[in-house]
């Protein structure tokens, strides 16, 4: 893949939605363990709405897809995940605006997205939140110079799994302090599905 196109964006969202619907209960159970048990429900509702939205529209630019994804997630997910995912996609949309999305631009978009999420959530890497997964993926994108699906998948997976061993200091799991150790962070798991889906799109190429 050279250019990340509208069709790629659609496939990305479609694959993500399928994964999220399939894993709705798993995400909810993870959130029950160290949060309030709504993460799967929220993400499933949000991505179902994303699909409805995208299916009814035609797009010229990836930026426009990202914008609709952002707005839909923002207004349908709620909780902590809604504004965070919403902000991420809004930043991608703003970075991509009116342009073809080549590797450097995609990476730039991800930089803005991660910065936006960190700012919105007042959070940093290592706090056992989805920032851990997004940051790890970004870092590899910055180190590399071309789309690499397998690398993205492995990176996201490792970062997601790593949240199990850390103690939460942000989000609802933070209230549990030491008791949060030993559980995966639900937002990191949903983010993993997002990047796993993107990795699939990248590997399939155009």
């Amino acid at each position: 893949m050279e250019i990340f196109q509208v069709e790629h964006a659609r496939k990305w969202m479609k694959a993500t939605n399928e994964r999220i619907q399939e894993k709705k209960q798993e995400l909810t159970e993870l959130d029950q363990a160290i949060g309030d048990g709504d993460h799967g429900i929220n993400m499933a509702r949000g991505f179902r709405e994303v699909m409805t939205k995208l299916d009814g529209e035609t797009y010229q630019h990836v930026a426009d897809v990202m914008k609709d994804v952002a707005m839909t997630l923002m207004s349908k997910v709620g909780g902590a995940a809604g504004p965070l995912y919403g902000t991420a996609f809004l930043k991608l949309s703003m970075a991509f605006k009116g342009q073809d999305v080549d590797y450097p631009l995609f990476t730039k978009g991800m930089e803005d997205a991660v910065a936006g999420v960190k700012q919105r959530g007042k959070s940093e890497v290592g706090e056992k939140t989805l920032v851990d997964v997004w940051s790890a993926v970004l870092e590899k994108l910055q180190e590399n110079d071309h789309f690499d699906g397998s690398l993205m998948l492995d990176t996201a997976k490792a970062a997601m799994e790593n949240t199990k061993e850390t103690m939460a200091t942000k989000g609802r799991a933070a209230y549990l302090k030491e008791r949060s150790i030993g559980h995966l962070d639900p937002g990191s798991v949903s983010s993993f599905y997002l990047f796993e889906s993107l990795a699939g799109v990248i590997r399939e190429g155009v």
């Binding site: 309030d36 048990g37 709504d38 429900i41 929220n42 509702r45 923002m74 207004s75 349908k76 997910v77 709620g78 909780g79 902590a80 809604g82 504004p83």
Partner: peptide, 12 residues
């Protein structure tokens, strides 16, 4: 009112 135990969204 948000969904159960879920903060309402900014548009609301």
């Amino acid at each position: 009112a948000g969904e159960v135990f879920t903060s309402p969204t900014p548009d609301q």
